[in-house]
């Protein structure tokens, strides 16, 4: 900057240096732009879209008269295999204070440990403080996979 105008003969070298500097910079910047893009193109292992359907369990995972808590979006949900072998699924968030409910094989009811709230196997609040029934989800068995989905509401 300081020396250029007084000594124009240095200009070609200086120009060359600047071009190399610029070239390096542009290549480096392209690398820093394309690195995220390449990483972006490779899909992550988890394909959970947080959508309305989630893989809750596989067939055989649950015995008769047993329950399992699984993650459905940002909330826990409960998959119950009833005494007749059929599945049903509910939101596991207690309608009283939001504790996570569990299946009680001894009572054959869904039970909230926080305030002893109880729901029947249709999710209806039958005893204790819960003011509302649990939201019921749809269960579909496809091959060996058990999918749970929110009942369609657009």
């Amino acid at each position: 900057m300081r020396e250029d105008k007084s000594n124009p003969t240095q200009n070609p070298e200086r120009r060359r240096f600047l071009e190399v500097l610029l070239g390096t910079g542009i290549v480096a910047s392209l690398v820093s732009f394309f690195y995220p893009v390449i990483r972006y193109l490779i899909p992550p292992p988890s394909t959970d879209l947080g959508s309305n359907t989630v893989l809750a369990a596989t067939v055989g995972e649950l015995g008769i008269n047993a329950g399992k808590i699984f993650r459905f979006g940002d909330h826990p949900a409960l998959l119950v295999r009833m005494a007749d072998g059929n599945y049903s699924a509910f939101s596991a968030v207690c309608t009283h204070l939001g504790c996570t409910v569990e299946y009680r094989p001894d009572l054959r009811e869904i039970w909230c440990p926080c305030h002893n709230g109880k729901y029947d196997l249709h999710g209806r609040n039958i005893s204790g403080p819960p003011p509302r029934p649990l939201t019921e989800f749809q269960v579909n068995v496809q091959g060996k996979d058990i999918y749970v989905s929110r009942t369609a509401a657009t």
Binding site: P36, Y40, D48, L49
Partner: peptide
């Protein structure tokens, strides 16, 4: 869900 997936799961 898919936008959430983009924001949280997909690299960059």
């Amino acid at each position: 869900g898919s936008v959430q997936y983009i924001m949280t799961q997909v690299h960059f």
